[in-house]
């Protein structure tokens, strides 16, 4: 590998830019390929660039066959991120679980009593309002966004920002009734059925979760399913049974 390629690859990784290192296994020729434009793509056949894009989206390195022989596509995706809106009890379980699963976790809650370092050791906490905090965090294809406050003032702007982003997973805690009211409010903001299909609500896989830790587990499992199986988001009416999302009374 040429040192210039390694240096560029390292710079891209530090800047959290998704990149593929393509290697022609017969000749040793190498180059970097990106999701959007940038240099490099023209050096490879379109089929390689397309396969590189697919590999990035699937987060899976692979070797493809081309007319010029096999080409290895090594995927370097930025770390997974989880943004949780609401520094509640479920979040205290979800944050460490998600970190074990490889996520960089950020928690947003302008209510300082909730968003204390004491409750969330080693987690990046923002006490800005969710719209500002989301604008700063800029969720991307490798980001999951979960809202857990039940408070429209906090959840709604975060959901609006998440829907405007490429976030691969959006989840929102709340009963069916709460979720229906939420979608009605989002409709007024100009969102529609295609957006709502992206929101997992009631949140989490239906595993009968009851405690905060169990609900966190259901949410992380659903995030994983979305990430790894790339199944289409369930239509709202087909959403799984609620993962026993308690109303906020348990929280305060």
């Amino acid at each position: 590998m040429q040192r210039t390629i390694l240096d560029q690859l390292q710079a891209d990784r530090a800047a959290k830019i998704p990149v593929v290192l393509a290697t022609a296994l017969k000749t040793g020729e190498q180059g970097l390929l990106y999701l959007v434009g940038k240099q490099g793509a023209r050096l490879w056949p379109p089929a390689v660039a397309e396969a590189a894009r697919a590999a990035l989206l699937a987060d899976r390195s692979t070797t493809i066959e081309t007319e010029a022989g096999p080409v290895f596509l090594n995927v370097f995706n930025p770390p997974l991120r989880l943004i949780v809106v609401g520094a509640v009890h479920i979040t205290q379980a979800l944050a460490p679980m998600a970190r074990l699963a490889g996520y960089d976790v950020a928690v947003i809650d302008p209510r300082r009593a909730f968003a204390s370092a004491e409750r969330f050791p080693d987690v990046a906490i923002s006490t800005a309002w969710p719209d500002e905090a989301m604008a700063a965090l800029r969720p991307d294809l490798r980001t999951a966004v979960v809202t857990v406050t039940h408070d429209p003032k906090l959840d709604d702007p975060a959901l609006a920002a998440a829907l405007a982003s490429d976030a691969f997973y959006i989840g929102s805690l709340g009963s069916r009734k709460t979720h229906a009211a939420r979608l009605a409010r989002l409709t007024k903001l100009g969102f529609g059925a295609a957006d709502f299909a992206r929101i997992h609500g009631p949140v989490g896989l239906d595993i009968g979760a009851r405690s905060p830790a169990e609900i966190a587990l259901a949410v992380l499992a659903q995030m994983t399913q979305r990430l790894r199986q790339q199944s289409p988001a369930p239509a709202p009416e087909l959403a799984p049974e609620p993962a026993a999302a308690p109303e906020p009374a348990a929280e305060s």
Partner: peptide, 8 residues
């Protein structure tokens, strides 16, 4: 299958 390359 493993590809081995020198870092130049």
């Amino acid at each position: 299958q493993i590809y081995v390359e020198r870092l130049e």
